[in-house]
Amino acid sequence: MIEIKNISKWYGNFQVLTDCTTRINKGDVVVVCGPSGSGKSTLIKTVNALEPIQQGDIIVDGTSISDKKTNLPKLRSRVGMVFQHFELFPHLSITDNLTLAQIKVLGRGKDEAIKRGMKMLDRVGLSAQKDKFPGQLSGGQQQRVAIARALSMDPIVMLFDEPTSALDPEMVGEVLDVMVGLAQEGMTMMCVTHEMGFAKRVSNKVIFMDAGKIVEDCSKDDFFGNPDARSPRAKEFLSKILQH
């Protein structure tokens, strides 16, 4: 469903991604991990072309993101994305946050958009908050609304960019619960996260990055179950995060 083919990216002279290649099949739950600054967030943002790439190509559901003829807004409307800092629209109510893009981008009618939005809001357990504004919700609640906003667009794949990193520890669980639910329903997901518990529980593939390169790209069972077969950098990373 997503094919990342030999992509490289530079910020000026600084190379942030070097020859990254991987693929994500329908129904996959892929966890991308690695130390900070390793290019994980940049990699996931290239998938829906929020960050441009200078070399290589990415094919999302048969469409190349670097093809000049590709309608990027249309492509992005089919790819759900959840951000580290939620990025709900603070000037709009929760209901409007959920319906805005459905109406303006997908061209749905208002009633249909509200119906769909409320269904998703109910799914993340926040129906009671529909008339509030993002600033009135806790971080965990905002992130769940952000997930509902992405789901309202009926995406073919969901991208999560460190969805729990900006949350208070006690709110991490409620967001992960929603993500686990999605994974179990068969949603195709790519998640940049440090939550190794989540990775162990629902992912089927783990990508480990370091210094802009994909160092490991293997099944979850290989990644966690067979540490001796891993690269030294991945082994070091695992030993640090798994001992607690």
Partner: peptide, 25 residues
């Protein structure tokens, strides 16, 4: 900047993102 990303990520064009997300704020 994240607001612009969020607008683009739900499929908005530059004009929509400005008109609906950035300029009102």
């Amino acid at each position: 900047r994240g607001q612009v990303y969020a607008g683009y990520a739900v499929g908005m064009t530059y004009a929509q993102c400005m008109r609906l997300v950035v300029l009102p704020q």
